[in-house]
Computed example of a mutant assay.
Amino acid sequence: MALIEVDRVKKFYGRVEVFNGISLNVETGEFVALLGPSGCGKSTLLRMIAGLERPDAGEIRFRGEPVRGPRREIALMFQSPTLLPWKSALDNVALPLVARGMGWREAREAAARFLSFVGLSGFEEAYPKQLSGGMQQRVALARALAVEPEVLLLDEPFSALDPLTAESLRSELVKIWHENLSTVHTVVMVTHAVDEAVYMANRIVVLSARPAKVVADLRIDLPYSRNRKSHEFQKYLDQVYSYI
C-alpha cells in the first residue's frame, strides 16, 4: 500500500474541468516534484492531499484511509509565508502547537528550538515586517516542521525569493529530508522550475494541461548533493524538458 494514493480523482471549478480521473501514488521516503503548465491543477492536487479541498469524484487516501480533512501527519507550506503580522516569529511557530493542545510555555520552547534549527536563533521576538523574505520563509518552514509531520507538502515555496536565498533554502530542505534531521520522511513539491525539480527530487511527475493527466513519471537516480554541471544532471534536464 502506498503512503498517499490519488485514485481516479475528478475535480471541477464550475465548468472548468481540472482533473478527470487522475491517479498517482506516493511512497514513503520519496521526494516527488510535480511539474506542469500553469493552471493545470498542481496546487489543487496538493490542497486535496492536504485535506483542504475535496475531490468531486474519486478518492485520496493516506495509509489506506480516505482524506476528508487536514491530518496531523501532513503539513503544507505555501508560496508565501502566510505569517500573522501581529505575532512574533516565535509565536507564529508556537501557535499551531497550541492549537493542537500544547501549553504556551512548552510551545514557545519548542518553537525556539525549530527557529534555531532553521538558522533564526536571535530573531525569536522579531515581527514579520522586520524580517527579509527569506527569513520569513524560514519561519514558515520552522512552523511546518514544529508540528512534526511525516509528510511535507510544498507549493512553490521558493518562487518569490531572490536566487541566492532560494538556493540556500533548497539545499537546507533537501538536507533536512535526506539526512532524516526531522520527522519529515516524504515530500511532495509543486514547482514550475525544471532545474529545481531535478536538483531536489528523487522522482518527477509531469502533468499535462487541463484536464490534467500524468504524462511522465521519472525516477531521478542521482546522489545528493547534486552537481548541476554534471553530464548526468543535464541528461535528466533534457529528459524532463522533452515532456513539457
Rank of each mutant, 00 (worst) to 15 (best):
L35W: 04
G51A: 08
R143H: 13
G14V: 15
G36P: 07
L207K: 04
L35D: 03
K129P: 08
V67S: 02
Y199F: 13
T44R: 04
Y243V: 08
A201K: 02
L131D: 08
N227M: 13
M48R: 02
V205C: 05
L120P: 01
V118G: 03
V9D: 00
S208Q: 11
R210V: 10
L95G: 06
H185D: 15
R210E: 07
P85S: 12
L97P: 01
V93I: 11
F123M: 04
S88V: 07
I74V: 15
L131I: 13
L34R: 00
W104S: 11
L46A: 11
A201F: 01
A209C: 09
L46H: 03
Q136C: 13
V118I: 04
V198Y: 01
G134E: 11
F19D: 04
G41L: 08
D56A: 14
A33I: 08
T165C: 12
D56T: 14
T82N: 14
P85W: 10
A89D: 15
P55I: 02
W104I: 10
M189R: 06
S23E: 08
W104V: 11
V147W: 00
F78I: 04
V98T: 13
R108Y: 04
A2S: 14
R100V: 06
V215M: 03
L145E: 04
A89W: 07
Q79V: 12
P70N: 13
V67W: 02
L76D: 02
R61Y: 03
A75C: 15
L52D: 01
L141I: 09
P85V: 12
A216V: 12
D217H: 09
A193T: 08
F114W: 06
K10D: 12
G133A: 07
V240Q: 02
